[in-house]
């Protein structure tokens, strides 16, 4: 127990260091972008006003906007203000592009969509991929195993946005079985709404599942195959343990360990959304939000969306480090 507390303390320290570094880098990155939120706003203003603003007016508007958005003062001042917002007040301020909507409101709207889509597709792909990979690796010398493995090899190198296009062309355009764009009416949750959500999310989810499925099949196949050569699997076979039991209790039980780590890492990236998938299907998630934040130079929104990703990845790696001993008794802390 003492060992465990010692470990926990060190692990938590690393956790905070990782967060701090990630968030500091995040602070600098948008400021290196060529687009400036105030310039963007001025351009829009001039466009809609239909007449040129004088130099004086521009300078005045600049000053007012800078105060309003909280992006004035030296970089250092901005940095400390930013750290305070992230770690103390957990508030990213208003969106610069959709002013005065607060960033948190935009994120709260988008997060459930991304979370639902990614969680379902990541877990489905993990379960299916590992099951198929296990069977393909365990029966590696049978014909059907080769077929399964070839399936994985064919699927995994295809970029998921290509998949998305192909699925859109076939199942939304040529055979209009699914909608081209995502349309779900806001309102209370009813049975009809749930059906709507599933119907509208089906193609984006399928895209993500197929790609992750291919990866998981290949990973698990090679793990299962090499585990099968271990001494304890040979001994179990010579003991007369039934093949099914060898597959589950011996091969799967050992080969799954690295796959659990990889699941935790992909669960961490759930909050980041699938940028391109969301864009292609105009899915109202974090990915779409991030894209509009980038093109509008919306610092605050970008900070909000990326901070969530950083925190999620850091927490999921922390969780897997703390939970891993449950799956592998060899690294239990006594």
């Amino acid at each position: 127990m003492k060992n465990f507390l010692n470990y926990l303390w060190q692990r938590l320290l690393t956790f905070f260091v990782v967060l701090f570094i990630g968030i500091s880098v995040l602070f600098l990155l948008p400021r290196l972008m060529p687009s400036d939120p105030i310039d963007n706003y001025l351009q829009r203003l001039q466009g809609s006003a239909g007449q040129a603003l004088t130099g004086e007016q521009v300078a005045e508007i600049r000053k007012a906007l800078g105060e309003m958005y909280g992006i004035q003062g030296s970089l250092i001042d901005q940095y400390f203000g930013y750290l305070k917002r992230v770690f103390v007040s957990h508030d990213f301020g208003p969106s610069l592009a959709a002013y005065p909507k607060p960033v948190s409101e935009l994120i709260n709207l988008a997060l459930p969509w991304t979370f639902g889509l990614m969680l379902v597709s990541t877990i489905t792909a993990w379960l299916l991929g590992n099951l198929v990979g296990l069977v393909a690796g365990f029966f590696h010398n049978r014909k059907f195993a080769t077929v399964l493995e070839t399936l994985g090899i064919l699927i995994y190198p295809i970029p998921y946005y290509i998949f998305a296009f192909v699925l859109i062309i076939f199942f939304a355009f040529l055979i209009p079985a699914f909608p081209l764009t995502f349309v779900v009416m806001p309102g209370p949750v009813t049975f009809q709404k749930i059906v709507d959500i599933i119907y509208n999310s089906f193609l984006p989810a399928l895209t993500l599942i197929l790609v992750n499925f291919g990866w998981n099949v290949l990973g698990m196949k090679s793990l299962a195959y090499s585990t099968k050569e271990e001494g304890y699997v040979l001994y179990a076979r010579l003991k007369g343990v039934k093949p099914r039991r060898i597959m589950y209790n011996y091969v799967a039980r050992n080969a799954i360990l690295p796959q659990i780590t990889s699941l935790a890492l992909s669960l961490g990236s759930i909050f980041g959304g699938a940028l391109i998938t969301e864009m292609l299907f105009s899915y109202p998630g974090i990915g779409m939000l991030m894209r509009s934040a980038i093109s509008n130079g919306d610092y605050n929104l970008l900070y909000g969306t990326i901070t969530i990703t950083i925190v999620a990845v850091a927490i999921s790696t922390l969780a897997i480090d703390l939970l891993y001993p449950l799956f592998d008794p060899r690294i239990r802390h006594r």
Binding site: G231, G240, Y250
Partner: peptide, 23 residues
């Protein structure tokens, strides 16, 4: 092979690698 360990059994040389490490 139907009678393995019931009628004929085998003691391997490497006990470390012959036992399932996570069970």
């Amino acid at each position: 092979s139907e009678h393995w360990f019931k009628k004929i059994s085998y003691i391997p040389q490497s006990s470390m690698s012959s036992l399932n490490p996570v069970v």
